[in-house]
Design a protein around this nucleic acid. Sequence first.
DNA 1: CGATTTGACAAGAATCATTCTTGAATGATA
DNA 2: TATCATTCAAGAATGATTCTTGTCAAATCG
Lengths: 132, 132
Amino acid sequence: MMMEKYRNLHIKLTPQRLAILSYLNGNTSHPSAEDIYKAVQGQFPTMSFATVYNTLEALKNKGSVQELKIDHAKKRYDPDSTIHHHLICNKCKNIIDIHKDFNLSLPDEMTEGFDVLGNSIEFYGICSKCNK
Amino acid sequence: MMMEKYRNLHIKLTPQRLAILSYLNGNTSHPSAEDIYKAVQGQFPTMSFATVYNTLEALKNKGSVQELKIDHAKKRYDPDSTIHHHLICNKCKNIIDIHKDFNLSLPDEMTEGFDVLGNSIEFYGICSKCNK
DNA sequence: CGATTTGACAAGAATCATTCTTGAATGATA
DNA sequence: TATCATTCAAGAATGATTCTTGTCAAATCG
């Protein structure tokens, strides 16, 4: 079931990588490398940070994980490869997904000859927890 | 003329800060701290990086400079405080401004109780130079 | 005027996420 | 089994940013 999906990545599936993949699968928490490292620590106490980064790099290249530039302090990763946007809490940096299609087109005279390939919208606000 | 504008910031205007302000004024190149440092080096060879960062911090607090999260490698700064968006070259990281108003509203059932305050759109593409 | 406080400065050390390097281990192939 | 490529762990290296310290100049106040 899930293995099928993983095999289609055409990367070598080691136990460490499977643990990372399984943590990421369906995960909407937009974890940082550290979050992932901690989550997999239980199963592989000897695993190093390098393995997390290497695996994320491999997944990025396959397009199955996206690197979010939302937080300057640390990179956040998103396993949802469908087109969507994000709503970020200014205080706690919590990120939720916005699955809505906005049809954003740019008039040619604004693009200075760029070949425009896509877009991403960040909504900012304060989440309900921080708003109390 | 310009001094008026600077004085309204209500921060102490030292020669170093004036040099930074004058470099930033009307600048649409979205410079990094290093770019700014290099640009002001000519006038103040003894200036340190800390002064650049301190000044940017002060300007950020006054809302007259925005920190862009577009580039993971280094922060980029934008002195244009009007509402606008960005078009970024995936290859050379060149950033141009998009002054266009998109009316983006989110249905309540998507916001999970967030108080939505604003948004920012990043368009991605390849600039004409990199496309040759 | 002096004295004192405030904030800015330069220099360099400290931090910390990320990347790189190395050598060992593993897996695939034939 | 021999070969070759890939992955792994461990820790060193990197580099942008932040922090610390002592110095200095401008502003305030008696």
